[in-house]
Write a protein that binds this DNA or RNA. Structure first.
Lengths: 215, 215
DNA sequence: GTCTATACGAGGATAGAC
DNA sequence: GTCTATCCTCGTATAGAC
């Protein structure tokens, strides 16, 4: 489960390596339990170092939480910035954006859960207007461009942006519930299932915003 | 916040009233914090009775959690069963189903969070195949009917069902994060915003599954 | 059925040696 | 920078009176 590579500690007495190791384990734990449910002992157990190191580097549990959220946001933004939005058609740009959200969630399954926990459990205290705007504005702008160019139907860019993200990432967060829809043993996080999800989500979203449908 | 009416206790020494009062407060707390993050003291504080009553009626915290999940499921199923799926067109049936998911989430904001917490935090241990199937099968069947009748495009009913629910309920779970997209002070749970969300979600979903688009 | 009081373990946080 | 040992609060759960 979780990220492909969890640093179990690289070298001895390497501050950066230790911090990253703690951040990795913490991200896993916060994604599983949220700020309230997370246990610092559980985090330490998945690290090459001891619990005391958490407090040495991050002062307290909440400081660690903030560091995890910050890193999660900047990772998401990095992924987002790699998407080339200057494709000729808004349709292509939108396709790439949705793919990026889903690939990002597939590679690091922690991110969707982290963001949702922050909203539900922490009332979204951490992320301010700037953070959220930078996450959503590429999507919102593509939608606006599509409407202006006549490719997309008249829709509310903000609501639709949120709903698009919902259809992209809800799959990952509710996976342990909805897995029962598929034959028992099916792994919803497997490469094959993720690709299938991506294809279906993209198709639905594109068809959902287009003014005139594909032949 | 939360449900419109939280029973603060009806009469004195009324077992049913007390149990319901505890269940209401517990649902609120579990929806906010999950099983791990929930505090029995917080639950008791929002009840007319003391913490000891929780253990008297539900043995322990997990027993209470199970009772809350059971009630949440049966409520959702009740809402679902009220939807008339014998409308002539699959399109109309789908519209009603999505509306039902959103209205249900609007009336009891706890339900989406409860279900997500169970998946992420508790690995979906509680809900088995039958529970999940009963939640999703109306939607899946309508999609299958629509494909068979030629109204809907060729799509994977399971994946699309999950993605439809995602675009319906993600809005509510991520509300405290994405609220910053709207002018400060906007209440995403207000009647007006919920109606707008419902309209946008339905439009996107319907357009997303139709084979031939509306004129 | 409901309350008050309390036992006890879990878990966040710190001190101080190395 | 890292560890071990420990403190002490918080939170689950129970005992027993009313």
């Amino acid at each position: 489960m979780g990220s492909s590579t969890v640093n179990k500690k690289a070298a001895c007495r390497d501050a950066e390596a230790t911090k990253n190791s703690i951040l990795d384990a913490a991200e896993e734990e916060f994604a599983r339990a949220g700020l309230l449910g997370a246990r610092t002992e559980a985090i330490a157990a998945n690290t090459g170092v001891t619990k005391a190191m958490i407090y040495y580097y991050f002062s307290d549990k909440e400081g660690l939480y903030r560091a995890v959220l910050e890193r999660a946001l900047s990772r998401r933004l990095q992924i987002l910035q790699k998407v080339d939005l200057h494709a000729a058609e808004p349709k292509e740009a939108l396709r790439k954006l949705v793919a990026s959200f889903i690939d990002g969630a597939g590679q690091n399954q922690n991110l969707p859960a982290i963001f949702l926990f922050e909203s539900v459990q922490n009332q979204g205290k951490f992320y301010g207007q700037i953070a959220i705007a930078s996450l959503y504005s590429p999507l919102v702008q593509v939608l606006e461009r599509g409407i202006a160019s006549g490719h997309f139907r008249k829709l509310d860019p903000l609501h639709v942006a949120v709903n698009i993200v919902g259809s992209a990432v809800y799959y990952f967060c509710s996976a342990q519930n909805v897995k029962h829809l598929w034959p028992s043993g099916t792994d919803l996080f497997s490469e094959g299932m993720r690709e299938k999800h991506k294809a279906e989500a993209i198709e639905m979203v594109i068809a959902g915003v287009l003014k005139y449908p594909p032949a």
